[in-house]
Design a protein around this nucleic acid. Structure first.
Lengths: 186, 186
DNA sequence: ACTCAAGTAGACAAGTCTGTCTACTTGAGG
DNA sequence: CCTCAAGTAGACAGACTTGTCTACTTGAGT
């Protein structure tokens, strides 16, 4: 379904992620979307409104991809393995660009900014999703939250170093923390 | 020692961290530094060159603060505790602005960009510093690298959620991983 | 006393930014 | 058939961007 609105969102997804929000101008946005300037402002009140809409789309897609990566796994260990495999694939596919959601949030200092609020909501949803996915295998919330931190650290540090090694460190740590928690309550 | 150069660097440190690189213009930079435009370009070839210089300064200061936080600790557990205490203090002091080094790197997509290269070098130095600080207490490199991922994840997720909880999750995970490694080789 | 680097103020170029505006076309529903 | 929303192209305003330029001052070393 190619509509002007979805064309704009698709272009924004590509450009905001690869170039950053501030470095992407309305002009480039409408040129590459192939829509008229007027049409852009018909669908989005401002560039910032597009930023928020982009976050909604990117956040939903990212969470769905995490869910899909874990689908079909039969153990907590398998689920964790799948999560970090997915993170690694993502890091490699995007040439270590890091988390697009966090990167966008970094461009807005004010905690009350709508974009920043959306980032917070999305990352909260991500933490809750990891809790939910692991709770299915009786993994306690405490461990799930530790896995969330490891996922975030893996993406961030892998991007900074342009290297997958931190992702492997994170995966190993997560599996070890899981094993610990299983030994404590057998 | 107040010299034009250090005035500029000080201002850049403040503005790049709080507003971001792209959103900070040369005009604001020289206004708040109190130096003439010409003086700026006498000391720095371009805005990007200032970005690199800022990273050098901020990176050195951050690593020194990590080292200082651990100084005097007598056990691996104490050292890890101190690291995450420091991370928490930093997160609160900066109103969850996240890692200034990573935030700056996020504004440059090209892996070959001098700023991005500097970010890589700095984060590599950080990983090596954590290794060194923990190796003093016979903590294996494998565990030290896991702690590095946890530190990065703690800063990033705490910033995204505007909450210190991820820092506590990370600290607990680090201490548990440490305990594990000590039990394996007693 | 003279030189020269480093500082000052500020005009300027050439481009970019976001957002508004006029004027026109097109296609679907009543 | 007629209307109206949604689309098109593109001019424009006004502010801002980085970086260069002229012209002047000041202070330290020889």
């Amino acid at each position: 379904m190619s509509s002007p609105r979805s064309d704009i969102l698709e272009t924004a997804g590509r450009l905001f992620f690869s170039q950053g929000y501030t470095q992407t101008g309305i002009n480039q946005l409408i040129d590459e979307s192939g829509v008229a300037r007027r049409t852009f402002y018909h669908h989005f009140e401002s560039k910032e409104a597009l930023g928020v809409a982009y976050l909604e789309l990117a956040g939903t897609a990212w969470l769905a991809s995490l869910r899909a990566a874990v689908a079909g796994r039969r153990s907590a260990g398998g689920a964790i393995q799948a999560l970090f495999d997915h993170v690694q694939r993502f890091a490699l596919d995007t040439s270590f660009r890091g988390c697009g959601i966090l990167n966008l949030g970094a461009e807005f200092a004010d905690l009350g900014n709508p974009v920043r609020v959306r980032v917070r909501e999305t990352k909260l949803a991500q933490r809750n999703l990891v809790r939910e996915l692991l709770q299915a295998f009786a993994v306690p919330v405490r461990i799930a939250d530790q896995v969330s931190v490891l996922i975030e650290g893996a993406i961030a540090l892998a991007a900074a170093l342009a290297d997958v090694a931190p992702i492997h460190s994170a995966r190993d740590a997560a599996l070890e923390l899981l094993k610990n928690s299983q030994n404590e309550t057998p």
